[in-house]
Amino acid sequence: MTAFVLVPGMCHGGWCFADLTAQLRGLGHVVHPVTPTGIGERSHLLSGGVNLDTHIEDVTALLAAEDVHDAVLVGHSYGGMVITGAADRLPGRVDSLVYLDVVDSGYAVRPLPFFDPRATPHPLASVLQPLRLTGDPARVRRRDYVYAAGWDGESPFTPVYERLRADPTWTTHSLDGGHNLMRDAPGELLKILLDVATK
């Protein structure tokens, strides 16, 4: 079976993947939902030194400690930068990357009113630090982009989705859900992840 590593977006912990985690595990897959350092139940670890590199290290340390190989890394929003960095640093352990509604850049914000009540403020340095890559992103077998088409109003992610749809090195999907696809379209997202694991 496949090993999935699920990385949340800003202000969220691994708990936001609870339903998806249970479904994937119920099908026999190994699933590691990540709560980044300084967030949620790990907010007590927040310091001025927590940045994007810290969150990338959260994932690479997990891959090493759990001896995970051929992983499917799933990043929601900000988590897309984290999985990209982790795949760059440990390419031999990563098979595929799945991006859920990810934009090229963003700004730090407090948890928005529609966020889960467990959301906590996000470390500012982690979104201000540029992502530095050392390797070739083509070293992973597959890269998927999952676009949330059900925003109330225009999605800020539409330009990224349109660009990747025209790129033959990406597989794109459009789901009728808001930005938190794991909450708004869990069944369809589960199908996509199972497809990534088997093809």
Rank of each mutant, 00 (worst) to 15 (best):
A3E: 14
L6T: 05
H12C: 14
Q23D: 09
L24T: 00
L24A: 00
G26R: 10
V31M: 06
T35V: 00
G38K: 01
I39N: 09
E41V: 01
R42Q: 07
S43T: 03
H44C: 07
L45S: 00
L45C: 01
S47K: 08
G49P: 04
N51H: 06
N51P: 11
T54N: 12
T54Y: 12
H55Q: 15
I56N: 15
T60L: 08
L62C: 15
A65G: 12
V68M: 03
V68Q: 04
V68E: 05
L73C: 06
H76E: 15
H76W: 12
S77P: 06
M81D: 13
V82W: 11
T84G: 03
R89W: 06
G92H: 14
V94K: 11
S105F: 09
G106K: 03
G106C: 03
A108L: 11
A108P: 07
A108S: 10
P113E: 13
D116N: 05
D116S: 08
R118K: 09
A119P: 07
A119T: 02
T120H: 06
H122F: 10
L124V: 12
A125W: 06
L128W: 06
Q129M: 15
P130T: 00
P130Q: 12
L133E: 12
T134M: 13
A148N: 01
A149K: 08
A149I: 06
W151S: 01
W151M: 09
D152R: 13
S155E: 13
S155M: 14
T158W: 09
E162I: 02
D167W: 01
T172H: 14
L175N: 06
H179W: 04
D184W: 05
P186V: 05
L193A: 00
V196I: 00
K199Q: 07
K199W: 09
